[in-house]
Design a protein around this nucleic acid. Structure first.
Lengths: 224, 224
DNA sequence: CATTTTAAGCTTTATTTAAAGTTGGTGGGA
DNA sequence: TCCCACCAACTTTAAATAAAGCTTAAAATG
């Protein structure tokens, strides 16, 4: 999961970035509204955390601009004020959620999970396929035979695969969604993580597998 | 934009309605196939989201019925299954798109936008002729008898043929469109791929064939 | 020190070439 | 006019070459 964090207070931005990365998100941090807009135009994000009061361009303007362009990325607004007017304006402009500073990191994390949740039916923080479960709060991969923990990158790769079962995801798309559109890393790194994940799935006796299809990418399929 | 949502799981229906309304669609929700048919007869919709498995009347029957009456409203089918048979039958019955549960709301929204876009040159993700379907995202070639995957070049050749049914395409034109203007490759390579494709079409029991006409090139024709 | 990234050698699969058939139209001789 | 040799257009297969993907270990990062 790739998040954009737009927050001009350096100390808070730094702290949030650390917390988010520890929770297995990839984070791009920007420090004003104009920068936020630039990143949103280029990159593909699963969620945006947007401070309202920022230099150059305020958060609500950023939000209005991207919504006007048809970008439906989930957005959480942050603000020091708790005034009703702001809240209403923010939600009217297309925000998905709203958080008043100061807040507990626990609450922020819960709201990010809620906002980026797949399928919308169930309030589970777990992805499931075959005899394999991926817990999105503990980053544990488990099967009836046991469980093991995944590293940040491993987790994000598998999360993307499990969120789109049977759909092929190209190496380039993994790069963009996990490493970011401006990453310098070699495509090779994706293959390395596919290899690691296969090893772990095999070790757990999974009845699903990561299939490769030339030029189409990778997809999760039931073992036949 | 006015949408009809036919989905019998109440929780999912509720969630989808909320999301769609937040994205500025007007939504009529119905909970079985018969109701869907009733609404479609009276109302004027810009798009329909149709679950396949529903009480009273399944989604594919609803789709067939309205298409038989000449109703061309765009339809996205939803299903829990990802089986080839279903997919082929759904598309054969006149669905515009197909989505397997669970899906990202982002994806549904994107497909609704694509489906309801007027005047654009129908950038559907698949090509169809006779009992054969070509999926442009997975390079899968399928018929009621099964499916097999195509290599990159095979796919491009068949894509060109299926986009221009009944039209003869010369060997030189294949070369230019697929291998590029300045390719060093022999013309022969086109003939080789025609041969490979015929073999695969035969294996799938296709009721279409690649016909050759001397000096005119190749075209897809129904089997007589 | 755990995680991430790079690099290298290896395996598998796709693409291209080459060569050995087929087919069908054309033109010249009986 | 009919028949047949001939040739160019196409077909198919097998083998050679190229590309894509896999795995491991070692180097870099923080």
């Amino acid at each position: 999961m790739r998040l954009l964090l737009a927050e001009d207070e350096r100390a808070l931005s730094k702290a949030l970035t650390t917390i988010l990365e520890r929770n297995h998100y990839s984070v791009d941090a920007v420090y004003d509204g104009q920068e936020a807009l630039d990143y949103l135009e280029c990159g593909q994000y699963d969620g945006v955390i947007l401070d309202i009061m920022m230099p150059k361009l305020d958060g609500i303007s950023v939000l209005k601009t991207i919504r006007a362009k048809g970008n439906l990325v989930p957005v959480i607004l942050l603000t020091a004020k708790s005034e009703v007017d702001d809240k209403v304006e923010g939600l009217d402009s297309g925000a998905n959620d709203y958080l008043t500073k100061p807040f507990q990191t626990k609450e922020l994390l819960a709201r990010i999970r809620a906002m980026t949740r797949v399928g919308t039916t169930q309030a589970t923080a777990r992805l499931q396929m075959g005899n394999i479960t991926l817990d999105q709060t503990t980053f544990e991969l488990s099967s009836p035979n046991g469980s093991m923990s995944l590293t940040n990158k491993e987790f994000q790769m598998l999360e993307l695969l499990m969120s789109n079962p049977h759909q092929y995801i190209t190496t380039e798309r993994f790069m963009e969604k996990i490493w970011g559109y401006d990453s310098q890393a070699e495509l090779n790194v994706v293959w390395v993580y596919i290899s690691y994940l296969r090893k772990k799935l095999t070790a757990l006796g999974a009845n699903i597998q990561i299939k490769a299809k030339r030029n189409a990418g990778y997809a999760l399929e039931e073992l036949t």
